[in-house]
Design a protein around this nucleic acid. Structure first.
Length: 434
RNA sequence: UGGGGCGGGGUGCGUCUGGUAGCACGUCGGACUGUUAAUCCGAAAGGUCCAGGUUCGAAUCCUGGCGCCCCAGCCA
């Protein structure tokens, strides 16, 4: 017989099952008690009456404390009055561990502040909303891999310990590396997968990069997860096409497999159903024109900035890709547009509803000489990048890729304003515990 | 790295105009045979983040520190 889970309770109607879980809440009314259990897949109400239960079962249920672990046995019954439509007619209750009465579970079912909840993150993840968010996160990751794998991509992990910065600008977490001096936690796998892309054609890496920037906004973590595809012989158009297909597939998968989670999160699925391809595409110039119509004073040449990105992202009901930014506002490794060298062949995808940037990518500089020049302009040490220069020396091809921020994508799809809830244990400027 | 805000029972807050703590939730006890973050009755539980200062008197005002939150910059 299949293992019983609350999510699949309907399949077990009329059967005797063992629910292995925790007490979520206990409601009682005289001679009838309704313990509500959770098992990681959902919530389910059980019912026991004084008349039908043994003295021992009756008092054992009455003594249950919040989050005590239990194995509840009984029959699954269809019951329209029960949340979820099914309830467990309790026959036996095995208490695995009792939460002590004098030291109760700290997170009650009422409202709490962010600080309190984050200090109890190890327990907060049990709450239905947080659990739904983590399930949705898993689906986003699963769908992303499924999509890339189906297109022939090979996952090639990039190292987390690196000898130098991938992009000179941002700050890195450093550490001592034996006798070899200073090492750093990677801020992107990109440079390394440019190498594996030249070996395997289409590749991706998926892992945590680290950023020691002192950012304290709703869209930044110091440790987060980024999915980075990289393709040999790819143009900017190929990248935009891929990013669009990838995000559309994530959306479709969430809609297909996370209906219950969306409901728990009170996220209107119609908002996601509307996200049909094609998404919008605007050049930087067109975006600037639109922003100026909306009253922005932004001069040509500057990066858009958070406020303007929010403005753009609120203007569209689907993701919008902004491409061909002024080169001087962008990273050293981005290929200039041959038709207008002052532009970089890059693109950002902004999620709608004000969520902002979820994807950033570009075609990479493929000329050895230009890359050397860029390294010098950015005052980056050529020695540590000599292997990277080699990629332009031995069979250089047009190529490129992008990074997709998992937490940002999850927060957007789930409709939560802050990305700290989209990862089990967020790492932020002022928070490293638990 | 700038700008703004908050800090009190386990938790979330009110206290505008300074007078030695108040509400709600949770917890505990009691009532109720279909509850829906149940309801009703009762109880326990804090001396107000820390250090100074003003004042007859500070949770309240001022200064500094600590912790956290929000906004901006940077980016995924």
């Amino acid at each position: 017989m299949a293992e019983f889970t609350i999510a699949r309770a309907a399949e077990f109607e009329g059967q005797e099952v063992a629910l292995r879980g925790w007490l979520y809440n206990l409601r009682e009314s005289g001679k009838i008690r309704f313990p509500i259990f959770r098992d990681g897949t959902g919530l389910m109400q059980a019912v026991v009456t004084k008349a039908d239960a043994s003295e021992e079962l009756w008092s054992r249920v009455g003594a249950l404390t919040q989050e005590s672990s239990v194995i509840a046995r009984g029959t699954v019954r269809r019951e329209p009055r029960a949340p979820g439509g099914y309830e467990l007619v309790l026959r036996d209750l095995e208490v695995v561990q009792t939460v002590p009465e004098d030291d109760p579970y700290p997170i009650s079912l009422k409202e709490h502040g962010v600080d309190f909840l984050l200090r109890h993150r190890h327990l907060w993840v049990r709450s239905p909303r947080q659990a739904a968010l983590l399930r949705l996160r898993h689906e986003v990751c699963r769908a992303a891999r499924e999509f890339l794998d189906s297109q022939g991509f090979i996952e090639t992990p990039a190292p987390i310990l690196t000898p130098a910065a991938c992009e000179g600008t941002t700050t890195l977490f450093g550490l001592d590396y034996f006798d070899l001096g200073r090492a750093y936690l990677t801020q992107s796998g990109q440079l390394y997968i440019e190498a594996t892309a030249a070996a395997l054609g289409k590749v991706y890496c998926f892992g945590p990069p680290f950023r020691a920037e002192k950012s304290k906004t709703r869209r930044h973590l110091t440790e987060f997860w980024m999915l980075e595809p990289e393709l040999a012989y790819a143009t900017l158009d190929d990248l935009m096409e891929l990013a669009e297909g990838l995000v559309a597939h994530m959306v479709a998968s969430v809609l297909e497999r996370c209906r219950r989670e969306l409901e728990t999160l009170e996220r209107d699925p119609r908002k996601l159903e509307a996200l049909q391809r094609p998404f919008y595409r605007l050049s930087y110039d067109e975006a600037l024109k639109l922003l100026q119509q909306k009253g922005s004073q932004l001069p040509w040449g500057e990066d858009l900035g958070g406020a303007n990105e929010t403005l753009l992202s609120e203007h569209f009901d689907k993701p919008v890709i902004i491409h061909r930014y002024p080169a001087k506002a962008k990273a050293f490794y981005m290929e200039p547009d041959p038709e207008r060298p002052e532009l970089a062949l890059c693109m950002d995808m902004l999620a709608p509803e004000g969520f902002g940037e979820i994807v950033g990518g570009s075609q990479r500089v493929s000329s050895y000489e230009l890359l050397r020049q860029r390294l010098r302009e950015h005052e980056l040490p050529e020695e540590v990048f000599s292997w990277y220069l080699d990629l332009r020396k031995y069979g250089s091809v047009p190529h490129g890729g992008f990074g997709l921020g998992i937490e940002r994508t999850v927060a957007w799809l789930a409709g939560v304003p802050h990305i700290r809830e989209a990862i089990p244990f967020p790492r932020m400027l002022y928070r490293i515990y638990p």
